[in-house]
Amino acid sequence: MVSDGPGEHDLPPLDTLAARLEYLFDHIRPTPQELGDGDEPGRRYTNKEIADKINILSVRTGVSISAAYIGELRRGVASDPRTSHVRALARAFDVNTGYFVEDDAASRVMEQIALLSELRRIDVKQVALRQILTDTGLSATDTQLVEQMVLRLREATESTAREEAGTPPRGLV
Results as ranks from 00 to 15, higher is better:
S84H: 04
Y99T: 11
L14C: 03
N96P: 02
E34I: 03
R20H: 09
R60M: 11
T61F: 00
A67Y: 00
S66D: 05
K48R: 08
R43Y: 15
D26V: 03
E72N: 13
Q33R: 13
E22R: 13
T16S: 12
S64N: 15
H27N: 13
D4S: 15
E34K: 10
G42T: 06
E22Y: 00
T83I: 08
T16D: 08
R60K: 13
L24S: 06
I54E: 01
Y23F: 11
L11V: 08
A88S: 09
A67G: 04
I56D: 05
D15C: 02
R20T: 04
A67N: 05
V95G: 00
D4Y: 10
S3W: 12
S79P: 06
G71V: 10
R74L: 12
D4F: 13
K53T: 01
A78M: 08
E40M: 13
L35E: 14
E72A: 07
Y69K: 04
E72L: 08
R87L: 13
T46K: 12
L14P: 00
S84L: 01
V95H: 06
V95C: 06
R75S: 15
R74C: 13
D94K: 13
E34S: 03
Y45H: 15
N47A: 09
F93P: 07
D15P: 02
E40R: 14
G38H: 09
E49K: 03
V77M: 01
S79F: 12
V2L: 14
I65D: 00
F93G: 08
D26A: 14
V77I: 10
A68W: 02
